[in-house]
Design a protein around this nucleic acid. Structure first.
Length: 426
RNA sequence: GGAGAGUUGGCCGAGUCGGUCGAAGGCGCUCGCCUGCUAAGCGAGUAAGGGGUUAUAAAGCCCCUUCGAGGGUUCGAAUCCCUCACUCUCCGCCA
């Protein structure tokens, strides 16, 4: 959420930013509601001030036994209250509309973000590793997985519905190895690990920006709770409504959770395999920091995510998303894309964003003690480190061999009981 | 799921026959004084959000709201009434 005052005082800049994002937003209604709100507040408050004054006088008069004078004042206050009630109702309606409007405007892109319309305008910042050169025709994971007995698409559909998958045998074990490997590596780099609820309430999802605008992307329970689409939601909201101490920052958190996405609107995209599914595992990184260090922390977070790919020996490239491709809450986002032979291209495996104070304002995450009076909004960052399902896919596809087996990257072997190869079933 | 107790400022904790309570006291924190260093001591300040004022710097000043949330009674509610949420204790159930 952007600050109403900021929008009011920087209308042109915000308009330009929304144009860069390719976003429509109702500026005219905002200006109207914002002005109306302030007018109403002025009126209501001056009446309240008069009422408070009169009430004090009544108290004093009653003490002095001047009943008649007190009664006259009581009558005046009754009238004032009627006026206040009417104006208050109007004000509440205006504020609700304004609030809703503000909750639907995306974050301002950082000045370093390239302006562009869509993913073709993203800018590559680095490329590491070399895609494997196969002396045989590599098999896509949607064929390789079932052949190895490690991925079962049909049974995922049977148990739940389409776009759910089952991992079995060495696949289940590899998945667990990846989770543990990632968490251990991030712990070494200063991230504190958390275990979190897989469900979250409306306030939590509003805090990080999924609600109210993107409810269609979420699974919702009959009790009004939502299945989390990412651990970012929980890690960031851990400190919702809190005032943190400046010297405790930055907070660096990580967590493994399952993630649930309705994937509404993506029918027909990545339909084969387990690239886009309703439930997947992810290790998430979140930082809460100060405005001064936030963009440095973003660079560090990207490095932490890339480290996992380096350690697994997977080829990848890192891109800065342009204004038109960035997510709702982000001021700047780096995507890390891993090489997938089945796509013959790099495919997103991590997305690291600096949300500046956008989520902090929604979630009231503040800090104090930074050499200023009172408290200020913190900055929040989040990044995948990494999407486990896609990492598993990348390992299978990139480490496959001519005989149909898959070599296990050395870094993972300690997590697989020393196992070095996944052999075809049978 | 049933019964009872509770929910006050960064933290702890006073505060019910309704007004002088945004709220005693303590801790913590900030500034100043004192002090060979440290410790202790002394003085002042220290909730949040919003509106206005000012030069759309900072500070200040004025006003409004907020004592879990929402509603009610009243000229006036932290204090009385109702509903809900959460926490704790006991019982039940259970991995």
């Amino acid at each position: 959420m952007l600050d109403a005052k900021y929008v009011r005082e920087n209308l042109d800049a915000v308009r330009a930013a929304m144009a860069d994002r390719g976003e429509e937003w109702d500026f005219a209604t905002f200006v109207h509601l914002d002005g109306e709100r302030r007018d109403l507040i002025g009126e209501v408050e001056s009446r309240q001030a008069r009422r408070n004054e009169a009430s004090k006088q009544i108290g004093a008069l009653m003490k002095d036994g001047k009943r008649d004078e007190a009664e006259a004042l009581k009558e005046e206050v009754r009238l004032i209250n009627e006026q206040i009630a009417a104006e208050d109702a109007h004000l509440a309606q205006v504020e609700a509309e304004l609030e809703h409007l503000l909750l639907t405007i995306p974050n301002m892109p950082h000045e370093s973000v390239p302006v562009g319309a869509d993913e073709t305008d993203n800018v590559e910042v680095r490329r590491r590793g070399t895609p494997p050169a196969f002396d045989f025709e590599p098999i896509a994971h949607w064929d390789l997985g079932p052949a190895l007995g490690v991925i079962d698409f049909e049974r995922g559909v049977k148990l739940a519905k389409s776009r759910f998958v089952v991992l079995g045998n060495d696949g289940a074990r590899l998945n667990r190895a990846l989770v543990n490997f990632m968490l251990d590596e991030h712990a070494k780099r200063g991230y504190t690990e958390w275990a979190l609820p897989a469900l979250a309430n409306e306030e939590t999802l509003t805090g990080t920006g999924q609600l109210p605008k993107f409810e269609d992307d979420l699974f919702k329970t009959s009790e009004g709770l939502y299945l989390i689409p990412t651990a970012e939601v929980q890690l960031t909201n851990l400190h919702r409504g809190e005032v943190l101490e400046a010297d405790a920052l930055p907070l660096r958190y990580c967590a493994y959770t399952p993630c649930f996405r309705e994937e509404a609107g993506s029918a027909g995209r990545d339909t084969r395999g387990m690239i886009r599914v309703h439930q997947f595992d992810k290790v998430e990184l979140v930082k809460i920091t100060t405005p001064e260090t936030s963009f440095d922390e973003l660079e560090g977070m990207v490095g932490d995510a890339e480290h996992i790919l380096d350690a697994l020996g997977l080829a990848y490239r890192t891109v800065v998303l342009c204004t038109g491709d960035m997510g709702f809450s982000a001021a700047k986002t780096y995507d890390i894309e891993v090489w997938l032979p089945s796509y013959g291209d790099y495919k997103e495996i991590s997305s690291c964003s600096d949300c500046t104070d956008f989520q902090a304002r929604r979630a009231a995450i503040k800090y104090r003690g930074g050499g200023f009076k009172g408290s200020r909004l913190a900055h929040t960052l989040n990044g995948s480190g990494l999407a486990v399902g896609r990492t598993l896919v990348a390992v299978l596809e990139n480490y496959q061999r001519a005989d149909g087996s898959v070599l296990i990257p050395e870094a993972l072997r300690p997590y697989m009981g020393g196992q070095e190869v996944i052999e075809p079933r049978g």
